[in-house]
Design a protein around this nucleic acid. Structure first.
Lengths: 133, 133
DNA sequence: CGTTTGCATTACGTGAACGTCATCTACGTG
DNA sequence: CACGTAGATGACGTTCACGTAATGCAAACG
C-alpha cells in the first residue's frame, strides 16, 4: 500500500470516488495506471493528477480543460518549441484563475453585505415587535 | 429599452445568452419575466439575477444551487423563522466560498511555482545548447 | 393583404460525466 | 475444488443544461 502503488479500491477510499470514475478518467486519458495482469495499479503520479482533477472540478472546469491543465504538469520530455506554447497556455490559465479569484472575492463581499443588510432588517423587525407590545 | 424592461432579444445580446437559455431559466424558476400579452419582458431584477446566475456558473455551481443562492437576495417578505434558516444557509455559502478562494489561491501558487520551475528548465537547456556549440 | 419578423410553445435531440447491470476472469481460502 | 472476493469489460441508463427543429400567433411592413 505504501509501495507507491494503490489498487482501485484503495484509491476510491482515499479520494472518495467510485471505481467507475477512475476507469472513466483513464478512458479519457486523465490517468494512466499501470497494469499488473489485468488489474490497475495507481502510481504516485496518478494520485497527484487525481487531486488536481478533483480540484479542477470544484472550480467548474470541464474534464477536457482539466486534461489540458494536467499536461502542464508533465513537461520535461517536451521540446523547446512545444515548451513555448505550453507556457503561453499556462500563463493564460494563470490569468484566468486570478480573474476568477477577483470575481470570487467580489461575490464574497456582496454576500457579506447582504448578510449585514439582513441583520439590520431583523433588528428593525425586533424593534417593531417591541413597539407593538 | 431604458424603461427598465427588456425584450428577450435585448437580453440575449446584452448578456450573450440564447433565448432558449432565458426560457429555460424561467422554467427552472430562476427568472420571473413579466408578460405583455405573450411576450416576456425582463425587469431590472431579472437582469440582476441573471448576472448572479452567470457568475455562479463560472464557479461550477449547479442551477439548483444557484437558485437557492438567489433566494438569499430576495429576503424581505419572509418571516423571521424562515429568515433564521435563510441566514444559516447564507453563512454556510459564505464559508464555502471563502474556502474555495483559499483553494484557488493555492492552485494559483502551485501554477506559479510550476512556471518558475519551467523557466529554470528552459534556462538550463539554453546553457546546454551553448555548451554544445 | 400577403409576408416577413419576433416571440411563443411543444417536443425531441445532445454532450458531458458518470451510474448501473450483466457477465467474465483471476486469486486466495477453507 | 467449490466459493467468495476484487477487479475488468462492455453496454445501456440517467441527470443536467441547454440545442434544435416544427409549428403557431400577432404586430409590422411593403
Amino acid at each position: 500500500m505504501t509501495e507507491d502503488l494503490m489498487t482501485i479500491r484503495e484509491m476510491c477510499e482515499t479520494y472518495d470516488v467510485t471505481p467507475r470514475t477512475l476507469r472513466f478518467y483513464e478512458a479519457k486519458e486523465l490517468l494512466f495506471p499501470i497494469r499488473e495482469g489485468q488489474k490497475r495499479l495507481f502510481t504516485k503520479r496518478d494520485r497527484a493528477r487525481l487531486k488536481l482533477i478533483l480540484r479542477g472540478k470544484r472550480f467548474g472546469f470541464s474534464l477536457e480543460e482539466i486534461r489540458q491543465l494536467l499536461d502542464l504538469y508533465h513537461v520535461g520530455d517536451q521540446q523547446m518549441t512545444q515548451m513555448t506554447r505550453t507556457f503561453e497556455i499556462a500563463r493564460e490559465r494563470l490569468a484566468d484563475m486570478e480573474a476568477r479569484r477577483e470575481e470570487l472575492t467580489q461575490a464574497i463581499d456582496d454576500l457579506k453585505e447582504q448578510l449585514r443588510w439582513g441583520e439590520k432588517v431583523i433588528a428593525s423587525m425586533k424593534n417593531e415587535n417591541k413597539a407593538a407590545e
